[in-house]
């Protein structure tokens, strides 16, 4: 069951890398960065999952003797890395806005004044 999550997360990471390496449009590259990041997030949050577990919150009306928690640490880490991913996206998009003004294009293969 959890294997599906793991494989999906590696698939997402590979997909994100593919996007970043093949797509010419800078916005699509930005999306690719997002996808790779979400893949990593999915991997972390799946690491903490335990089949049958509930959310790690002591809410008395819902807990019974038989219930047990999933790992809270990866959830906290995922929270952190989601915020980081959002900031990265914001930064990239602002760069893209200025690049479009300056170079007049969004094509990555035309944005290459620095080379060699």
């Amino acid at each position: 069951m959890i294997l599906v999550n793991y494989i999906a997360s590696f698939f997402l990471i590979a997909l994100g890398f593919y996007c970043m390496a093949v797509k010419k449009n800078l916005i699509k590259i930005c999306i690719g960065m997002g996808i790779a990041d979400y893949g990593a997030n999915l991997l972390i949050v799946s690491v903490g999952f335990n089949p049958g577990g509930t959310a790690p919150i002591f809410t008395m009306s819902e807990l019974t003797q038989a219930s047990f928690f999933v790992d809270p640490v990866p959830q906290a880490l995922t929270l952190t890395s989601i915020v980081i991913g959002a900031c990265t996206t914001a930064m990239t998009l602002s760069l893209v806005i200025r690049l479009k003004e300056k170079y007049g294009t969004l094509q990555a293969d035309q944005v290459r004044r620095l080379r060699g």
């Binding site: 959310a55 919150i57 002591f58 906290a76 929270l79």
Partner: peptide, 8 residues
């Protein structure tokens, strides 16, 4: 009560 909150 929320362990995730405690961790964070």
């Amino acid at each position: 009560d929320n362990v995730v909150y405690s961790v964070v």
